[in-house]
Amino acid sequence: KKKLITNFEHLERLSNRSRYVARSCKEIRDRYNEQEDGLYYLTTANGMVYQTFCDMTTAGGGWTLVASVHENSINGRCTVGDRWSSQQGNNLNLPDGDGNWSNRNTFGTAEGATSDDFKNPGYYDIKAEDMSVWHVPNNFPLDHWNLAAILRYHTNNRFLRLYGGNLFQLFKHYPVRYNIGSCSNRGPAVPIVYDHGDRETTRMFYGLKPRKEFEPGFITFRAINNERAAMAICSGVKPIAGCNTEHYCIGGGGYFYPDQCGDFPSFDYDSLGMGQGWS
């Protein structure tokens, strides 16, 4: 009986969260003194209400989950599920691909963020200063994300202020588009603070050959490879040589020469998961 009451009280407390009015998890934390990680309702400037996950603990907290990039099929080449590049095939005539890095389209659910791609209105509505990134094994439930993550880090230099306050605005300055420039035209590389993992574990997540091309300890935006394909984010690393970023940067436009198109473009180039070559 005691357990039943506890569960009810727990649900009651969770449902009370729907009375909060805020545009970000930081506002909920600051205004309502909520310090528990979990799902909360947020409201956009236009009054649209949506639900997302708040990390209230990392580095003082108030982190709003706005997106997830999930690979449903590493063998798919810009096919269904490649929302962060293109679901319309590797196509020279669609240089932006699906365009989701710089539009107001939304998809997925917060609870399903490790099982499919996710993007909510916070992606373009929240004026933020810093970013945090978690790499969580596929299909893990929300209450285990933090513990299960293989890599967690955040920025702390308020770099987003310089780029309009969110990724929507940042990618207006640096379009994720095929043939927008060359390798030397990449966007900002921002130093990170590790919450789980370090520079060495970051390095080891990528292939033997990519390790000679990047420096760990950064998050980089809009990288461009030798073939002029654009990628959105190099997570944990800054490309410094070689320009073969398709092997270690995620998201992209709609065309990769010859056929490496995808949300995790060419992470499987050779010997997938064997720690050899480019893969």
């Binding site: 982190w63 709003t64 997830s68 916070g122 094994p137 994300w145 997540f205 984010i233 992470f267």
Partner: peptide
């Protein structure tokens, strides 16, 4: 990249 990396979703947060 390692299988760990390709079989993990990348979650993006703002503050």
């Amino acid at each position: 990249a390692s299988k760990e990396m390709t079989e993990a979703a990348v979650l993006l947060f703002y503050r």
